[in-house]
Design a binder for these strands. Structure first.
Lengths: 195, 195
DNA sequence: GATAAATTAGTACGAACGTTCGTTTTTGTC
DNA sequence: GACAAAAACGAACGTTCGTACTAATTTATC
């Protein structure tokens, strides 16, 4: 790994952290440079535009999400156990161990839901992928005999995402100390009705 | 109503629309002035700062939410029917008949969940109010005998909010034409388990 | 250690930002 | 219609934005 790639990765880590707090539009070159402790122009030389920066931050966030949420879950057994792991890792990811402001995709989803362009396209692709992965995990749980055979896996993904998003709201905005417990309760109800 | 109050209201309508699309931070005085077809300074004279503008937009959004979502629901019977009406009106509100970008509070919630200050405080207050109103509606449904007596009304609010937020994501970002149907299905499952 | 390449820094740009000011136009009252 | 008050305007402030250039410095290769 060359020096340039090294600092570029360091920049992207800072950028992910900032974007998780103030969003991808709120992310500024000057502020990012200050955070990374380098000059604005020196930093900007690594990207061809701000949009390119935003796209690269999104790509970095996807890699981080796979490493921190998806990969660990695939080390536990198929079916319901894996879905449980997925959900717990997902909540932990949202709690901000990696990014102080929580999941950057939640931020991005709301910033770009009415803002056409390449960044929105990338966010949509990322979320579609993730929703699809949840549905696939549910299908595996069906195949394993954990979930009932007529379960609507897309509906399962929809409802699981809802629990996560409500957790985000209660945890981040409302500062509800019981947020995680509420999410778990809702999760159990969803699992129960999927059996 | 004096002339000044009249145009101030008109400004707030434009501002609500813009904020629902690009957020409260993305809202700019210049852009708003262009939308309202008046000069930047003339518009700014109605507010003592941008933050004051943001707070007034939030207040206007609350009034609009009460008019468009809460009030109609209170014209139907207490208990489960009212909760059904509340939910349907809420989804319709999100679909953007009033504000093109959907619910301004969803936007604001994600913009300010990591941004301390008076605006965040106002958003938190608004959302706490609404969550409380949902829980109260659930309590009424218990009193009416529609819901089971040991139902956790706060948990009910948490889960209902989750369905709404997932609807937001599927409808606005993923452009899922079945979003509303998915929300309804999840809603029915929640109601069923509350009886 | 010399030399070329890759990486950072410095400076400047035009545009947009929120905000202030003095002036002009419009409004409502006698 | 005179007059004061209210409302809207135009211009400018200092700052920050993203981006473009060139110069200096660091890194890698021989």
């Amino acid at each position: 790994m060359t020096k340039g790639e090294d600092t570029r990765d360091r920049i992207l880590q800072h950028a992910m952290a900032i974007a998780s707090e103030v969003g991808f539009e709120g992310l500024s070159i000057g502020g990012l440079a200050k955070s990374a402790e380098m000059s604005k122009s020196g930093l900007f030389a690594h990207f061809e535009s701000k949009e390119d920066l935003q796209l690269q931050v999104l790509a970095a966030a996807r890699r981080s999400f796979v490493d921190n949420v998806v990969a660990p879950s695939f080390r536990v057994g198929r079916g319901e156990p894996r879905i449980r792991a997925l959900f717990e890792e997902w909540l932990t990811w949202e709690e901000g161990r990696v990014t102080p402001g929580g999941c950057p995709f939640v931020t991005a989803s709301h910033e770009y839901d009415d803002r056409p362009g390449p960044v929105r396209d990338a966010v949509v692709a990322a979320q579609r992928d993730w929703v699809g992965a949840i549905a696939t995990a549910a299908q595996i749980a069906i195949d394993e005999g954990h979930f009932r055979i007529d379960l609507d896996t897309d509906q399962f993904a929809f409802e699981l995402f809802g629990i996560f998003l409500s957790f985000h709201l209660y945890y981040r905005l409302l500062d509800d100390p019981e947020a995680r417990q509420r999410a778990r309760t809702a999760f159990e109800r969803l699992i129960e009705s999927s059996r």
